[in-house]
Design a protein around this nucleic acid. Structure first.
Length: 225
DNA sequence: GCGACAG
DNA sequence: ATCTTGTCGC
């Protein structure tokens, strides 16, 4: 897919943690929580596996509603930024962009294994990527970074409760599978929270995580290494 | 000072 | 995320 970062969103990746936080505050102002503006024919799943200082970023594209694999792309290379809670995107986004530009398709909706607005500065990896690409993006994380789920979450598949931080609804704890821990869904960019939850459930079949994310995760860690 | 902390 | 064996539960 075309990966052209608008000049007002460009920034260096080789930065100090302090500079990274300042960039997040600036880009968070560009996140748009609004209704999807297109029909969704394909969804993408993104993930990165890391070993030592080497990363393997994977982008997969699935057809909707069959969720069959359309294509996949991989990028491998050195990772420099360390893992710091709250700064994950500075570690993974550069590689994910390289994998995305090797795609022949233009996915309508991107799934990321991370937070979107459910982030201390409201710019998790999903939002960071979404803003750079100016494309609809959803964050689906296996664990919470900040915020508190409101009330008890029913065991029924599809149940969800708001995730609130400092008085703001930043995402949702969603039961994608009975008896399994919830996943944390938040808006990445150009989608509403209700739609993000809806699409997460629509793309989740037999497992706890959505198929796009699951496939990308599998490819980013298995074979080849 | 203490606890929490996406991947 | 990665490392890494067996084990508890449906």
């Amino acid at each position: 897919m075309r990966v052209e970062i608008p000049s007002h969103c460009r920034h260096p990746w080789d930065v100090t943690p302090e500079e990274a936080r300042a960039i997040q505050v600036r880009l968070a102002a560009r996140v748009r929580e609004e209704p999807l503006d297109r029909a969704v024919a394909t969804v993408a799943g993104l993930d990165m596996g890391v070993r030592r200082e080497r990363g393997r970023a994977v982008a997969v594209v699935l057809a909707v509603p069959s969720l069959s694999l359309v294509e996949s792309a991989v990028w491998e290379g050195p990772i420099h930024f360390p893992y710091v809670p709250g700064l994950l995107s500075f570690r993974e986004v550069p590689g994910l962009l390289r994998a995305l530009e090797r795609l022949h398709t233009e996915p309508d909706l991107l799934f990321t294994d991370s937070q979107g607005r459910a982030h201390p500065r409201r710019l998790g990896l999903a939002s960071h990527l979404g803003v750079l690409l100016d494309r609809p993006t959803i964050g689906v994380a296996k664990a919470r970074l900040c915020g508190q789920p409101q009330g008890e979450l029913p065991e029924l598949r599809g149940a969800w409760v708001p995730l609130v931080d400092r008085g703001q609804v930043i995402g949702a704890a969603v039961r994608t599978r009975p008896g399994a821990k919830p996943v944390y869904v938040s808006v990445g960019h150009r989608i509403t929270l209700a739609e993000a939850v809806e699409w997460t459930l629509r793309c989740t079949t037999h497992y706890r995580l959505p198929e796009p994310t699951r496939l990308a995760d599998r490819l980013s860690r298995s074979s080849g290494r």
